[in-house]
Design a protein around this nucleic acid. Structure first.
Lengths: 240, 240
DNA sequence: CTTGCAGGATTGTTGAACAATCCTTACGCT
DNA sequence: AGCGTAAGGATTGTTCAACAATCCTGCAAG
């Protein structure tokens, strides 16, 4: 490797290495406990409204109460848990107001990302779209296997990767939080198939528009897409 | 008060009461400690890069190490502190990349809020603009007294209240985080006057456009405003 | 100049203990 | 019976002390 090569190139490499190191560092007992709880919540094992007992979870997760409370704090700030002082932590119960709030933010962020891709199209290698393609194909495969929760997961990851195209760490974090809360909403809906099926082909259509570099068209399409999704969830919500 | 009056009216009232109760509940030792640290950081007493020793702060704040660590977690998720595993917590050092990232999000969120006001103009009472007017006048008063950090604080609150017009709790939280990080950036800039002075009258102009209900004009004005502010900070940054 | 190895300092985690608050139950009153 | 109230138990909030794991510093050896 040449030492006096490209200055910016070396800096970019240093950044990727630093990111990898940070990723390896991320392993404390509290975060491992949070990982387990996060999966339990997003997969529905802990339904909205459920209380998480401290003494019970210390035994299951094999961590001390203090460490468990740190895990609770982590998840609280992801929106997956809420604290009620002197009463404990609960899986939040979101309502229609939250649906509107969440989707407003999704529309703002995602549409802006897609529209902004036009400005930096030259510096965007085609390989950046590969994760999106993988997600689309994963959703299609899961649908063929009738595994609708997996379809929902793949669709979620599609949107997370879509935001990732903006190279904004803060947008990534916000989106992760928004999608986690959205999953909370999904669990109150009885029919996951009707909830996720329509968006498999809409995601593919969106992906192909991006591949064809028709960013403005993709943005307006995505806007309609998210409006439609919001209405679907609201309708399912009102039907209990 | 009529019991069978407006259904939605009563629900709205219940929501405000619930919000007040939640606000009163919000008082634990960890959050009080976090409040003190937050002020120390945003006011510059703890400069970027500084490490916060646990044993030292337990004595100053008179809380236990566990409670202090909960306060650290709170501030970490506000972006005011960063954890390095087995090394401690530090005040983050933001760079030009972060400036671009933060301002991109500010533009997206704030412009969307202003533009969205047009749709719900009828239901928006004029009193909602009062906090904005107060902030503008506070900034003008602080400027006359040569208190430029206070000008910066008032300008920040102006934008926080601007976002508040959207009635989105998640946007409020995100904006609080973004503005807190922005304050971190201000401390590396030597001349607070040149940094804040131009935006006193720009905020007033924006307020008057909102008062006149010229929302589209206000939105484009705000977009230019934020681009200008971003360039000013980047310029000050490159000049060390 | 780099490498490897103590030693000390700091953080990560645990367990126990006590105070504060909430929930439940039972009691007494109208 | 219905309702306010008080005692009791259970849970959370907070503190403390201790130990394990990791990092930083300085120094010696190659």
């Amino acid at each position: 490797m040449s030492t006096g090569g490209g200055e910016t190139e070396r800096q970019a490499w240093l950044r990727t290495v630093a990111a990898d190191v940070a990723r390896l560092d991320r392993s404390s007992s509290a975060e491992r406990a949070a990982d387990i709880l996060r999966r339990s919540i997003t997969e529905g094992a802990l339904p909205p409204g459920a209380q998480l007992s401290e003494v019970e979870l210390t035994e299951v997760l094999e961590v001390s109460r203090n460490t468990l409370r740190e895990a609770f704090r982590l998840l609280t700030h992801e929106g997956l848990l809420v604290y009620k002082l002197h009463r404990g932590v609960f899986v939040p119960e979101l309502d229609e107001h939250d649906v509107v709030d969440l989707y407003r933010l999704r529309r703002v962020l995602e549409v802006d990302v897609v529209r902004g891709l036009a400005d930096r199209d030259p510096e965007l290698p085609a390989s950046r779209l590969e994760p999106l393609q993988d997600d689309v194909e994963a959703a299609e495969a899961a649908a063929r296997a009738d595994r609708w929760p997996a379809v929902g997961t793949a669709n979620m990851r599609f949107h997370q990767h879509l935001i990732g195209l903006a190279d904004s760490s803060r947008m990534d974090a916000m989106t992760g939080r928004l999608l986690a809360e959205l999953r909370l909403l999904f669990h109150v809906i009885a029919t996951p198939r009707e909830l996720h099926e329509p968006y498999i082909e809409r995601n593919r259509a969106l992906f192909e528009l991006l591949e064809a570099r028709k960013y403005d068209e993709a943005a307006t399409d995505l806007y309609e897409y998210l409006l439609h999704s919001e209405q679907a969830i609201l309708a399912a919500f009102r039907a209990r």
